[in-house]
Structure formats: structure tokens, C-alpha cells
Amino acid sequence: MSSVISLTDIRRVFSMGDQQFEALKGVSFDITAGEFVAIMGASGSGKSTSMNILGCLDRPTSGRYLLDGLDVGGMPANQLAEIRNKKLGFVFQGFNLLARTPAVENVELPLVYAGFHAKERRQQALIVMEQVGLAGKENNHPSQLSGGQQQRVAIARALVNHPAVILADEPTGNLDSSTSEEIMNLFSSLNRQGITIIMVTHEHDVAAYAGRQITFKDGRIISDSLTGPARQNGQTA
């Protein structure tokens, strides 16, 4: 099977004034469609930095990034926005929902920017909300939802555009252990339906839901192994 993501010698250097800091020091890995990958590592090891690059929110200083076979490197900002919209779904630690906006409209948002009509947007949003177990909460504002429910809204929003990959940076970081379990079960079931998931986490029991663990240390990958109970659609590179 083909790689949905292929990173080759990715480096990311941050410069602050005259100081330079290399957060990623040559990272390479491939991810095959259908994989569920957990990225682990100590704080400051470069996990979020690589997720931002994977999510086309940030550009590497050097190296090559192929997403779904497309070289993302030289693309202009508007094209990257379109890629984020069509090929990627984001789930953040802090949920990042629009306040004072009904759940269903949060879920619809990617479709708004994709140019769908109101009727079709609503239809699609309701389908994914049902899928993530939010039936009946469509009109609640984020402040009227529990943390777990808010994260489900975020997952529904990530799913609604049928992306190639879902990127989740510490999706359970703000949730208690039982809610974390619910969310991870949801991810597992989505993965079983064939959705590629890349997730950053600090917790081993959360990482255990994934079929592959990549561990970072000081901007480098120190281990990359197949583990866990989750179904594997592909092999590691």
C-alpha cells in the first residue's frame, strides 16, 4: 500500500534574535494509509513541531514532505489552506472550538470553507455527529458541553471533510481517564473504518491504542515500532 505521508530528513530551525534552535534535527518516516500512529517523547522533544509540519501549519526549514503523493514544500499559503481543508483533520488538546457557536456549526466549518451549500453542510455535519455519538447535542454551544463532548465535536469537525489523515496533538491531555478511554475508543473505531490517525500523547495507556509508536528525543526519532492491539493496515517504513 502507498504512503499517505512521507517525511525525508525534515529539519526545523527556530531563530529568536541572534539565537538559533534546531527543534527537528533530520526526521524521516513514512505512514501508510489506515495506520494509527502514536508519537511519544519527553516535553520539548519536537512532537508538536513535527505535527505542525505534518498539518501544513508550519513549513520545515529543510527536508521533503509528501502528503498523498503531493510535495507540500513549495506550495503557496492558499494552496496549503486548501490541503488543510480537504486532506487533513485536526484535533487539539484544547479542543479549539468556536465559542458562542452551536456544535453543529462548528462541525460544518470545514465545509463552509470548502464551498458547500448550507443544506449539504448541515446534512454532512449531522451524519458525523451521529457517528461520534453527539446526536441530540447539535445546538449546544461549546460552553454547554462536557470536555469529552467538546472533543467529540472537534473530532466530528475533523472527520466531516473525509480527510486522508487525522492529526491529534494530545487529544486526551485535558480529559480525565474515563473520558480519555471513551475518546480513544472512538479513535480506534474510526481507525477500524480505515481512517489514518497520527496522535501525540504522553500517556502509555493512550499510546497503547495505536498500532505503531514513534518516540522522539531532542528533535530526533529514537524508536519506531509496531505494537498494540489496533489493526494494522500497512507496515512501517
Binding site: 498539518g55 501549519l57 481543508n85 485536526f90 470553507y113 470548502a114
Partner: peptide, 15 residues
């Protein structure tokens, strides 16, 4: 932050 969310989700500069 709202602007960031919209951009992450696919809003273009012109949007």
C-alpha cells in the same frame, strides 16, 4: 485564536 482555528480548518487569506 478564532482566526487560527479558521485557518487550520481551511480558511484562506481572502476568507
Amino acid at each position: 485564536r478564532e482566526i487560527g482555528i479558521r485557518m487550520a480548518i481551511g480558511a484562506k487569506t481572502n476568507d
